[in-house]
């Protein structure tokens, strides 16, 4: 199925792809046909720089949820240790 489900989000940070490090301005998060991962559908994250170039990730739904959990745990521990909070 072609869902066209895309959630855009503004970001601040960098990502490294085929062109080296890129400053990331936003991400598009989709759930649709992957291009490479051997899955019928995948959670797709396009990290996009100011020129529109992307660093792309395709994950199974379970992997995406595991990643969300790892990110939240990492943020929680890191913010507790450094005293930095979400801006």
């Amino acid at each position: 199925m072609c869902t066209y489900i895309t959630e855009p989000v503004d970001l601040e940070g960098s990502a490294k792809g085929a062109r080296g490090w890129q400053r990331i301005e936003r991400a598009h998060v989709s759930f649709d046909h992957p291009q490479h991962a051997p899955l019928d559908h995948a959670l797709e994250i396009d990290l996009i720089d100011g020129s529109g170039a992307r660093v792309a990730v395709e994950l199974s739904a379970a992997s995406a949820r595991a990643l969300i959990g790892a990110m939240e745990r990492s943020l929680e521990r890191g913010e507790a240790e450094t005293g930095e909070g979400a801006a």
Binding site: Y4, T6, P8, H28, S30, D32, Q35, H36, E44, D46, G52, A53, R54, A56
Partner: peptide, 9 residues
């Protein structure tokens, strides 16, 4: 695939 991602978005 890059063009397709842009169109999807």
């Amino acid at each position: 695939d890059d063009i397709g991602a842009r169109v999807r978005a």
